[in-house]
């Protein structure tokens, strides 16, 4: 098959993930959008592994998964902590950085 199509799919998924990250206020949904973007990247890696005929891309995707797992663990605990103190998971509520 034509690997370009898969790459386009990955790009579309990545764009949708970015879109959700920037529009959704719920931190959990935004976080899931990040995961979607990571998955899109993984898809590129696997496709390229296929294109080049080597397994390195798949190993890289494997590492991405590991990193994503670690990231989710820490990120979710941060969200839980924020929720515990602010009673909200809205990313707009945590706007202390302004000014």
């Amino acid at each position: 098959m034509n690997p370009d199509l898969v790459l386009w799919l990955a790009a579309i998924l990545f764009g949708i993930g970015a879109l959700g990250l920037m529009t959704r206020r719920n931190a959990l949904v935004a976080f899931m959008c990040v995961e979607l973007m990571l998955n899109a990247a993984n898809l590129v890696l696997v496709t390229m592994s296929n294109v080049h005929g080597g397994l390195d891309g798949q190993v890289a995707a494997f590492f991405v998964m590991v990193v994503a797992a670690a990231e989710v663990t820490v990120g979710l605990s941060i969200i839980v902590m924020v929720y515990r103190s602010r009673r909200s998971t809205s990313v707009d509520a945590a706007n202390l950085l302004k000014q």
Binding site: A18, M22, D92, A94, N95, K98
Partner: peptide, 17 residues
């Protein structure tokens, strides 16, 4: 310039994108 600094994470993400 500080009006750019809204404190909204999503705005920052947009700038980054």
């Amino acid at each position: 310039g500080r009006k750019v600094q809204t404190g909204q994470v999503r705005s920052y993400a947009l700038f980054m994108a």
